[in-house]
Structures are given as C-alpha cells and as structure tokens.
Design a protein around this nucleic acid. Structure first.
Length: 430
RNA sequence: GUGGGCGUAGCUCAGUUGGCAGAGCGCUAGGUUGUGGUCCUGGAGGUCGCGGGUUCGAGCCCCGUCGCUCACCCCA
C-alpha cells in the first residue's frame, strides 16, 4: 500500500498462517494418498538449465519461462513444469529402478504470464507418474489416484467429474473424416473450446478451418457420444476400434474400483500439451465455472525424447490454486486446529520457576504449551489464554503450590478443578 | 500481447453540489492489584496508490503513471 514498502512480486503469494494452514491441509492430504497408492515422493531443483526446457520440450512453454543468466554465465530457468526434471531423473537411473516406477512430487512451479483467477506466476502442483507399464490398468490407477487426491479433501462425485478420452481415438476419427493431418491441431484447438463456448461458436471455427457442415456436426456430436456409439459409427476403422477398446477398458477398471460415478467418457476432450499419446483426462468441478483442477494422460514417447530412455509413462498434474478456490467455494476449508492445549498462568512472579518446570514436563510429553512472556494480572493472562485458543488454563498460585496442586480451568466449559502437579507432569487420568 | 473494472486504516467499506479524514471488525491499554469470552471507556494506526494539472480550496474534477483484479490470447 505505502509506496516505500517493497511489495511482493506480481503473481506470487505470501502465505499468512491461515493460508499456510490450508496449504498444509492440501499437501498432507496429497501425501496420504500418494502413500496409500504406494508412490514414493521425490523432488528436484527449482532452478534448471534453460536447455532442459528449450531443447526438446513443447515450444509453448518457452515464451513464458522465468529465465536469466547466472553469475557463471549459464542460462538458467525456474522450472515451469516437473516433467523434464522427472524425465532426467528417471533416465539417469532407468536401468536400476524396478518397474513400474511410481513416484510423486509437490513442486513449486513458475511461469511468467499475466495472473488471473486460478492462475498465478507460481503455484504448487501434485505430480504423480507411473513409468514402465503400458497396460490400461496403469491408466486406471493414475486416474483413481487423482480422484482420491480430491476425495481426500472432501470432494465427491457431486462436485467433480473426470472426463476421459484417448488422444489416438480423436486422431483416428479425424483421419476417418478425411481431415488432413495438418488441420488436426486447429480442430483439436476448436474442440478444446467446446465446453466453454458452446457448439454454435465451435461450428463456426470448424467451418473456418475448411470442414463441411456434415463433418462439423459429426465432430460436435463427440461430446455426447458414448464409446459404443463411436465404435459402431466407425466400426470399419481400426484405429478407432483399438483406441475405443482401450478407453472402455480403462473406464471399466475405474468402475470396478468404485469410481464409476466420478468418470465420464468425453470424446471431445483435448489436452493442450502435444506430447500425449494415449489416454488423456481432466478433472473438472461439475459446474465448469473454474478451469480444470487436474489434467494428465499417457506420454509413451516423451521420456525417450527428453531423457533418451524409451519407457512408457503416464501421469497427471494437479495445481493448488484452482483447488483451493474450489475448496473455499464449497466451504471445505477446515477450521483452524487448536494451536495451544495448555496455557500456564502464574498468580505471582514466585510461581515462574515451577511453571517453567511444568511447561518443560508437559512439552516433553508432546503437549502444546504456552504462557505469558511477561508478568501480568491473572485476568489478563486468562484473556490471553482465551485468545490463544487454549483448551485449558493451568493456574499456579502460592496457595496451590504450597499443597503441590494447580487449578485447572477448562476453557470451554469454564469448570475449575484441582490437579496435583505430579499428575499434570505425568499426564495421569486425564 | 489485447480489452474492461477497481485503488481511502491490518480487513470490509462509507465519504453528499469540491469545504476539518470516517465507521464496523481487528489490534492495544484500562475498568483498583487470584479467574477469560459479554459489556463499557480510552489509544495507536491513513502523504486518500504515485506524479502533475484545474481551483481560494481536491479523497472527489482532468491528464499521466504504477498497482490490483476480471476476461481474452495461451496454457498448468
């Protein structure tokens, strides 16, 4: 506010205790799910050689990198995504790691672009990946983990839905409609906007791309078509059959695993990143007001391109910004946990030494203990105890001390009882 | 990169035709010295984003600028 103050950078966040608590809430939920699916956590450096992103990765990212030349003259960049680092790490130990590799990470990622709702210049993202397995069960497993990462935070099938498709399915359908390969990217781009802008706007885009009205109608029907519809419609096209079989296998595994209400086939789904080779999916809040909360898919060629090891892989990224917006909208942010259990109060300064001794004993037992850092009237100390959210106040005065006891006030009920110092120290019958 | 909206206390915001800078919440200190929450009283805290212009006088009008925000582009 004051111009003399140095403000935080645009698009970067300060985490005040309240916000940090939410962040921790999300991270610990993600870690629980990662552990539950047998994934190991890893991390890499937030600063990487610029080459890692410019050489082989998708060109889209490069224009939005935070990059500079370091003091040694090396071009470096803050990581905009985790996959290149992941690929390098996998490649360096590829032959030593038992497959399939199941790893997850919660990196902070950086991108230089204009901030807006649900998108900043920095965010944290849960990345989960499986390497070394082509079976569709791996695809179902990674999608299930993504859904559970959200369920763990209180979201259920009434809030979210996973849209699932297959990159090759859409390619095969475009080929079957005799759309030249050069036009695919444009058509992908148009279909990507379908959810947001509605069929009429997309029809205009498709026809601008040179598609006739019949073909446009067929493509627009993808959004509502079932896998069976497509299999019937393109029964003579092998590419469609193979991809359709794969998608329905993935979905049937998810249904068997109890995720049926969370998943929906959506043939019009397109993921922006070009490196996906098979299953693609996105998880959306049902109303569609926010952007996707999670996206991922299979990228069987990417590790070869980036790291030189030819291993099939798949994974997803789930950002914290949109997710936290969603949790707030749905009132799923937990209230602050009790910070303090015991608040120690001295009636006179003479009780300080025994109070410190008691504090130490209680803290040794893992209790959260605090007290006034300067001597004040008992009323003030109780006020402070209340403000600190203490569960109980332990009052030490000359009278009690002479008898080896303390007055313990339950801050919720207001009830006061006497406890011996010995039992407080040991934590007996509480 | 393009276009809209908004900048007044830590937060949410009032501020009339241009005439002494405000409220609520929060913070803090008291309400006679061994018992919190409620209540009462006081206090701190603002170059009205910044710079220029118009005017006797600008939070208010004009110009510029910076910041925030939403959308587009693109994408996570």
């Amino acid at each position: 506010m004051t111009p003399k103050e140095i403000q935080g950078l645009k698009g970067f966040r300060d985490f005040f205790p309240e916000e940090f608590a939410l962040r921790q809430h999300v991270f610990t939920a993600w870690r629980r799910v990662g552990a539950r699916y047998g994934f190991a956590e890893y991390d890499g450096p937030p600063l990487e050689s610029l080459d890692l992103y410019t050489k082989k990765s998708g060109d889209e990212i490069v224009g939005q990198l935070y990059h500079f030349v370091d003091k040694g003259g090396r071009p470096v960049a803050l990581r905009p995504e985790m996959t290149p680092t992941f690929a390098r790490m996998i490649a360096s130990r590829a032959s030593a790691l038992p497959k399939p590799i199941r790893w997850f990470s919660i990196p902070q990622l950086f991108r230089y672009e204009r901030p807006q709702r649900g998108r900043l210049r920095e965010h944290f993202q849960l990345n989960m990946d499986i390497v070394g397995e082509t079976d569709p069960l791996a695809d179902a497993e990674i999608i299930a983990a993504a859904i559970d990462a959200l369920r763990e935070l209180g979201l259920d099938h009434t809030h979210i839905v996973a849209r699932i498709s297959d990159r090759q399915l859409l390619s095969a359908i475009l080929n079957a409609n005799e759309i030249p390969a050069a036009e695919h990217a444009i058509v992908f781009g148009a279909l990507d906007k379908l959810e947001k802008e509605g069929p009429e706007a997309i029809r205009v885009l498709l026809q601008k791309a040179g598609l006739d009205s019949e073909t446009s109608t067929r493509l627009l029907s993808l959004e509502s078509a079932s896998v069976e519809d497509l299999r019937a419609q393109y029964s003579e096209v092998e590419g469609v059959r193979v991809a359709a079989d794969r998608v329905s296998t993935v979905i049937s595994y998810l249904e068997a695993g109890g995720f049926g209400e969370y998943v929906r086939f959506d043939g019009s789904l397109v993921r922006g990143l070009a490196y996906y080779t098979g299953t693609v999916f996105e998880i959306w809040e049902r109303s569609g007001k926010l952007r996707a909360v999670c996206g991922g898919g299979r990228y069987d060629d990417l590790l070869g391109a980036l790291g030189g090891v030819h291993l099939p892989a798949l994974g997803f990224g789930m950002g914290d910004v949109v997710l936290c917006e969603l949790l707030k909208d749905l009132d799923l942010v937990p209230t602050e946990a009790r910070r303090v259990e015991d608040y120690l109060i001295c009636v006179t300064e003479a009780e300080r030494a025994p109070a410190l001794e008691l504090a130490r004993a209680l803290r040794e037992r893992g209790r959260r203990v605090t007290y006034d850092l300067r001597f004040r009237a008992v009323g003030k100390q109780l006020k402070a105890a209340n403000q600190a959210g203490a569960a109980r106040a332990i009052i030490l005065g000359p009278d009690e001390l002479a008898r080896g006891v303390a007055s313990v006030r339950d801050m919720t009920s207001g009830e006061v009882s006497e406890r011996t110092l010995e039992s407080l120290r040991k934590g007996d019958h509480h």
